[in-house]
């Protein structure tokens, strides 16, 4: 019984047995902290699964704008640790590509500041990325079908089911920001003269 969590876009949680048993999504992009507990709780309730029945947890680790992403990752980390469950980290672009097709894909999500998070896929395998590109750079990948859609917990869960069968390593649990913290040391300013 797998619980999947994603806050790379909105806030969502899903429960999987062999199939997806429940999927709860709260699409608001500014209420991750408010929504995360409710989303997980409702996903468990709708699936009629108790938290004790879970056997694994999966979480989207971006790339995504930071503040919301961390909420889902923090919840998945503490929940899996508290229940001593394995936690799988998923690159959200991989989960999106997996949900589309095995064709050649350029998967992008909104990175804010007129940039995009992107990765290319061939026959289900990631070729390039994840990386940051501008809208103008979208034309640099001819032959790849452009897929622009957000990720969610259902896509994460579906991907994990398949990836585990294929033996994909999902042990990296670091958040993918693809940008340095937005700061430069101040040189200090004069106050006199």
């Amino acid at each position: 019984m797998l619980l999947s969590i994603d806050t790379s876009h909105g806030t969502s949680a899903a429960v999987f047995a062999d199939e997806c048993l429940s999927f709860v999504a709260i699409d608001d992009l500014f209420t991750h902290a408010e929504s995360i507990g409710l989303a997980i709780e409702q996903a468990l309730q709708q699936a009629d699964v108790s938290v004790e029945q879970l056997t694994a947890v999966a979480v989207g680790r971006g790339p995504a704008p930071y503040t919301g992403l961390r909420v889902g990752m923090a919840a998945a980390t503490s929940l899996s640790k508290a229940r001593s469950l394995p936690l799988y980290g998923v690159i959200t672009l991989d989960a999106i590509a997996n949900s589309i097709s095995d064709k050649d894909l350029l998967v992008v999500t909104d990175a804010k500041r007129k940039e995009l998070f992107a990765a290319t896929y061939k026959a289900g395998n990631r070729l390039l990325g994840p990386m940051l590109i501008t809208a103008e750079e979208l034309t640099n990948y001819p032959g790849f079908e452009l897929i622009q859609q957000p990720c969610n917990a259902k896509l994460i869960g579906q991907y994990v089911k398949k990836a585990l069968q294929l033996g994909v390593d999902l042990s990296d649990l670091s958040a993918l920001y693809l940008r340095s913290p937005d700061v430069t040391p101040s040189p200090g300013k004069k106050v006199s003269g």
Binding site: H32, A33, I40, T67, S78, A82
Partner: peptide, 23 residues
Amino acid sequence: LAGALMVGIGAAKGLAVATNKPI
């Protein structure tokens, strides 16, 4: 700091759901 607080809140809610304990 809002972004910092949210990490703790996410973690706390994950624990509360995991343990079925009040928050």
